[in-house]
Design a protein around this nucleic acid. Sequence first.
DNA 1: CGACACCTTGACCAACGTCAAATCCGGTGG
DNA 2: CCACCGGATTTGACGTTGGTCAAGGTGTCG
Lengths: 249, 249
Amino acid sequence: MPILQPARPKAEAFLGSQNSCAACEIRELSVCSALSEEELARLRAIISSRNVEPGATVISEGETATDLFNVIRGAVKLYKLLLDGRRQITGFLFPGDFLGIALNDTYAYSAEAIQQLRLCRFPRKKLESLLCELPRLERRLLGETANELAAAQDQMVLLGRKTAKERVASFLVALSRRAAKRGQPVSPLPIPMSRTDIADYLGLTTETVSRTLTQLRRAKLIDIARRDRIELLDMDGLVGLIDGASQEH
Amino acid sequence: MPILQPARPKAEAFLGSQNSCAACEIRELSVCSALSEEELARLRAIISSRNVEPGATVISEGETATDLFNVIRGAVKLYKLLLDGRRQITGFLFPGDFLGIALNDTYAYSAEAIQQLRLCRFPRKKLESLLCELPRLERRLLGETANELAAAQDQMVLLGRKTAKERVASFLVALSRRAAKRGQPVSPLPIPMSRTDIADYLGLTTETVSRTLTQLRRAKLIDIARRDRIELLDMDGLVGLIDGASQEH
DNA sequence: CGACACCTTGACCAACGTCAAATCCGGTGG
DNA sequence: CCACCGGATTTGACGTTGGTCAAGGTGTCG
């Protein structure tokens, strides 16, 4: 077993302080599945849940990092801004993912809900003291962070060296694989984020994203049922476009 | 104290199994400074040192991750390749930095020495069992990983949204800050990597890097004493070019 | 002193961005 | 149920940044 073992099944149990973790929608996916009943009970004592409307900001870059969240339902975009407003989306989060892993006292990025959101909130102060007593939780957090780091490195390759077509294909395939991992429908693949969000994630413009999707559609690699639903008609063809040496994710 | 506190002083003591950690050049910088004498002794028992020639490969993407390294002396480049040979350098490591933080059984990237290297090696198997008994070491590893993640996110902004001039300025300022943090000379700033490496790190070509450096030189922001020595004449001017909302690092 | 590797510079080019307009839905109200 | 409104998306024409290709420089090491 490797030192920084990632959680293969990716979500987990967390719900409002009043809500029972037993009813948690993502118990299987994340941290809680790695904990014993006794450990879970201690964790449950410090958590609470929170709902967030689409478009609302969950955390802002630079603000004091008071909480760590686990996404239970919905999707989130993480982003950083340049002074003149240029935006880079650094990632999307789905059920089971952690939000707010920060090393300093302040968040390193902003996060905005792109769907109706349900979050499980851990106050950092309390979590911190608990960490020493729940080594499995800390290990899990380390694994999750290492996971994110690996994803960030793949994204650096994409942003630094891939063409527009390769970027869009990579995005669709990665989204599909993540949805499959969560046990969500992949055909047609739900696309919760806007073209602008996709562009800001891939380092492109909306126009280029749109043109490239059209190109893929004309090549019969995908079918765009609705704006937010894309059918991946030829997965092998798409994977072939990715051109990565490492089969990411 | 935040949950994922990074190590502010950044290097640390590790040396060959025969070598005494007491003589370690970077004792102050990294993990070991956070450990007690007793803990250090246990760590010392499993480590060994290794020298690597410039240009030699330390680890390769996809190969079994048997070791974790700490850089004691020299500089390393980390990179990922696409099938057709396009390369993205995902980071540079200097004394005090960890090499080989991986979550799976395999390394996520390749690493090549760009200078004569001295490494401190931790066999992962042994380190793993030790981790449970040395919580401070695990915490340190988590902090280091979170650090790398933050750097990766800054780099995503650079690769996705910055112009060539902003990229080069960001690179020079970041390199200078890291050197200062290690207590190394910053004036003139040593540039151990080639223009090709810089280009592959910034998502540019060598030609563009070269042209941009010339542009900065003509604007009296820098002076290029030698290929591998750049004087940052106007730090405020350079920082102004970075245009980041977050003062990175 | 010469060879070679690395770097710089120049001329040209293409992928992607910019600006602008048309179109598509999705929601709303009649 | 259908027409309309408005933001998101798509498409088109054109511009620009940075890439490509090709010569020179430069310095390092034997």
